[in-house]
């Protein structure tokens, strides 16, 4: 990669100037988010089909979920989204220290979300409210309540994997920020991470009412 004279260090050789590189990255990120939405979309389809076939079973089964924990997790994730947005705002204003504090806060809220999720999961595993052949619970009326838990675990599990992936990426961004890689002139990776993290939040905004608040 031979950079031409006057090119900033972060500018790759095949771009003419930073604005083009930044816009390309953002464009690519949005296309990636589109693929994420359609990846989850498959599970939303499964949810819709089986709920339309078994409305009563879905209602009975959803009572096994803890609304309070679900609502708390929603608040936690929204807060983490706020801190992520503020981290980017801080770096736009070149307040590097603030930006790092907000990133750390985002990581903490993400961890809280996972801890709460862990307690919910272990409670269900303990009761045998599990997918498919592992379903041993007997307290729910209706046809095949294991399907509700199959879809519940698939969707929240995939979402949880995205939270973990997001934490890894945010940690990496935090390390780069601590090495002074970012400034108000160049913060593209942080902005892309923010977009990803907001999408994770956005998906949870739909998962919460669909699983915890059925009728």
């Amino acid at each position: 990669m031979n950079h031409k004279e006057g090119h900033p260090e972060f500018l790759a050789h095949h771009f003419a100037e930073p604005e083009q590189q930044h816009e390309s990255a953002k464009f690519g990120m949005w296309v990636f988010l589109l693929t994420e939405i359609l990846l989850f979309g498959g599970l939303f389809l499964a949810y819709t089909v089986f709920r339309s076939w078994n409305p009563d079973m879905f209602y009975n089964a959803h009572l096994a979920l803890d609304r309070t924990l679900g609502a708390v997790n929603t608040v936690v994730l929204i807060t983490s989204s706020l801190t992520m947005a503020l981290a980017i705002r801080s770096i736009q204003l070149n307040r590097k220290k603030h930006s790092m504090y907000f990133l750390i806060a985002t990581l903490v809220f993400a961890a809280v979300f996972l801890v709460i999720k862990y307690f919910e999961y272990s409670h269900k595993i303990h009761l045998g409210q599990l997918p498919g052949k592992y379903y041993t619970y007997t307290g729910i009326e209706g046809n095949n309540p294991h399907i509700f838990f199959g879809i519940y675990f698939a969707m929240t599990g995939l979402h949880g994997v995205h939270v973990i992936a997001g934490m890894i990426i945010i940690s990496w961004i935090l390390i780069r920020a601590s090495r002074n890689h970012f400034s108000h002139e160049y913060y593209t990776p942080m902005e892309m991470t923010g977009l990803y993290w907001h999408l994770v939040d956005l998906i949870w905004i739909f998962l919460f009412p669909l699983f915890y608040l059925i009728g």
């Binding site: 589109l34 693929t35 994420e36 990846l39 498959g42 052949k133 199959g150 879809i151």
Partner: peptide, 25 residues
């Protein structure tokens, strides 16, 4: 490619889950 392939990904995940855990959908 970007619109359709993710749904294939989810399809195959569900098929694998069906084989491994018999989630039954």
């Amino acid at each position: 490619q970007v619109l359709a392939t993710p749904v294939l990904g989810m399809t195959l995940i569900l098929l694998i889950l069906e084989r491994v855990f018999q989630i039954g959908i």
